[in-house]
């Protein structure tokens, strides 16, 4: 009896742990890895394994991050960065989708514009920021242009490739029904291309955020990029890492939001 009792007792405990594991699923391992890295960071700083003014303990960073919730500079800076990133992202995405579809369907436009796009595409956006200061100044126009440029290419490339792979039977069927060019584009080509466009848009979200931060670091008066550099010079690494933490959370949240929207709005994504 006692053996059975022990077995019952033992089996009830793993079931609680099991339910947590089930709820978190494979994410548990990811969470554990992050926790282990942060713990290692904390210990390495506290025990002096890494001696640097720019290696504060994680708990100090967390405290700095929490103290900012009551209305600190980080959230204001983050809002400024997000505003720029969203504006640039919207402009770059609209242009990328429009040109991707148009070039995909028009041979004349393809011949005229594709060489230019292919020449500009490999240029890293941060490299063009300093010379652009002369033409666009140092304010939002410069940063939004750089973000739009960085967003444009993945969206354009994916859209363009997506249009090229639209099943020809669909187009032929639309033609059989004498569907107009514009209607075919909107009702046949666009929905068939949406999964490709969405893939491009998702790649572009992280790029938009990265370029927003970099442009603020080079020519910023506000935003999280400027804040990061400012805090380095102000000998406040705790606030600098807190800003990086907020940035990471934002990037993660944007990506999750994108996946949710993708599943809701393009349910045929990933299905053949």
């Amino acid at each position: 009896m006692s053996v059975v009792g022990t077995l019952e007792g033992a089996s009830s405990k793993p079931s609680a742990a099991g339910s947590i594991r089930r709820r978190l699923g494979p994410r548990l391992y990811g969470v554990l890895l992050i926790a282990a890295i942060l713990l290692f960071w904390e210990v390495s700083s506290r025990l002096g394994w890494i001696v640097s003014a720019y290696w504060p303990p994680v708990t100090k960073i967390l405290w700095a991050a929490i103290s900012q919730l009551g209305g600190g500079d980080i959230l204001v800076s983050l809002a400024a960065t997000l505003r720029r990133a969203l504006t640039g992202y919207a402009i770059g995405s609209v242009l990328g989708i429009a040109l991707g579809i148009l070039l995909g369907k028009s041979k004349v436009l393809r011949i005229a514009l594709l060489p230019l796009i292919e020449i500009v595409r490999p240029i890293p956006t941060p490299a063009v920021i300093p010379p652009l200061i002369l033409f666009l100044g140092v304010d939002d126009a410069l940063k939004i242009f750089a973000i739009s440029l960085a967003t444009f290419f993945p969206v354009f490339t994916n859209t363009f490739a997506g249009v090229a792979t639209v099943d020809d039977t669909l187009i032929q069927t639309a033609r059989t029904f004498r569907t107009s060019w514009a209607r075919t584009l909107l009702r046949v080509v666009l929905p068939a291309t949406l999964p490709a466009i969405a893939a491009g848009l998702r790649t572009a979200t992280s790029l938009a955020l990265v370029v927003a931060v970099v442009s603020e670091m080079v020519a910023g008066s506000s935003g999280i990029g400027y804040y990061l550099v400012e805090m380095q010079y102000a000998l406040r690494p705790d606030l600098m890492y807190a800003a990086v933490m907020y940035l990471a959370i934002t990037g993660y949240a944007v990506n999750r939001l994108f996946l949710v929207l993708e599943a809701r709005l393009i349910p045929w994504m990933g299905k053949t």
Partner: peptide
């Protein structure tokens, strides 16, 4: 700005 590098380009622009 974080560095003086953009001062003169910004002035000219």
């Amino acid at each position: 700005t974080a560095g003086g590098a953009i001062g003169i380009p910004g002035l000219v622009g």
